[in-house]
């Protein structure tokens, strides 16, 4: 049981990185300026890389355990990163709702990235420092370097847009209204993450960082308010189904093939 919950947790980390990386990858070729097209794609590549590390590790654990898949469905053969990414359905994905929210305009993408990178930054730091599983701590340590840059990049853009023109500020406020209700879930522990992670501590650091950057961006820090939850346990917004329809199309249409 304990091992199951550890596998779930690893999948949760992987799903977060994959879904956000996938969302960011939708920008490739459509960015507001060439230099930033390249920048957001770099972040996307980092996230997909993180997802692969977590999936590979989860697959290894699952194979070792020789257990049926966590959702009790037979996938055939050994677990691989691709089977975990491409053959699970919406209810089995454990990413936070924030990651699957649509790109919207550049302001919404930036703010989503900033919220998420701040979260990942403190989360990975805690994982690296205190998680007893060496492999997970090692993946977190590697990812932390990437996330440190994502956080810096997205913070600067939040400030630029918040304190840029009237229009950019308006768009940031709009993005804030859309995304804020999805930030609460980051800190509501799912059953599989209660034992080791101190989410309360992460939440405090997250709030402080967001307050600091918002104050520089002249953006208001919203009241806590009503928060959506459920992503961590597979209760997603309708967005995820469409993401998976696209993401998984090839593996579903041509099962059991090498690519």
């Amino acid at each position: 049981m304990k091992q199951d919950s550890f596998i779930y947790y690893t999948l949760h980390l992987a799903d977060n990185a994959l879904i956000l990386g996938h969302r960011n990858s939708e920008w490739c070729g459509h960015g507001p300026v060439l230099e930033q097209d390249i920048a957001i794609t770099n972040i996307s590549l980092d996230l997909i890389g993180q997802a692969r590390n977590f999936y590979q590790y989860a697959a290894k654990l699952m194979n070792k355990q020789n257990a049926p898949s966590p959702n009790g469905k037979e996938v055939g053969g050994e677990f691989t990163e691709d089977k975990l990414a491409y053959l699970r359905d919406v209810r089995e994905f454990k990413n936070c709702l924030l990651a699957e929210q649509p790109n919207g305009d550049w302001a919404q993408t930036i703010l989503r990235q900033f919220f998420f990178s701040t979260y990942q930054f403190y989360l990975y730091r805690q994982l690296q420092e205190s998680h007893p599983d060496e492999q997970l701590a090692a993946i977190a340590a590697k990812s932390l370097k990437e996330v440190t840059y994502h956080l810096r990049w997205s913070s600067e853009w939040v400030i630029r847009l918040g304190d840029g023109t009237e229009e950019s500020r308006k768009r940031m406020l709009n993005a804030l209204e859309n995304l804020w209700p999805y930030t609460g879930e980051l800190f509501v522990p799912a059953a599989y993450e209660t034992d080791r992670m101190d989410l309360k501590n992460i939440k405090e650091q997250w709030a402080q960082k967001v307050k600091d950057i918002f104050s520089e961006a002249t953006l208001p820090y919203p009241a806590e308010g009503w928060m959506h939850t459920g992503g961590k346990t597979g209760m997603h917004t309708e967005q995820l189904g469409f993401i998976l329809a696209e993401l998984q199309f090839m593996q579903r249409a041509y099962p059991n093939s090498e690519w």
């Binding site: 300026v33 060439l34 230099e35 390249i38 920048a39 810096r152 600067e156």
Partner: peptide, 15 residues
């Protein structure tokens, strides 16, 4: 191209 020096350094890193 970049709007400011900070962005120029980051763009240079990415590009």
């Amino acid at each position: 191209h970049a709007a400011d020096a900070q962005m120029a350094i980051e763009n240079a890193r990415d590009v």
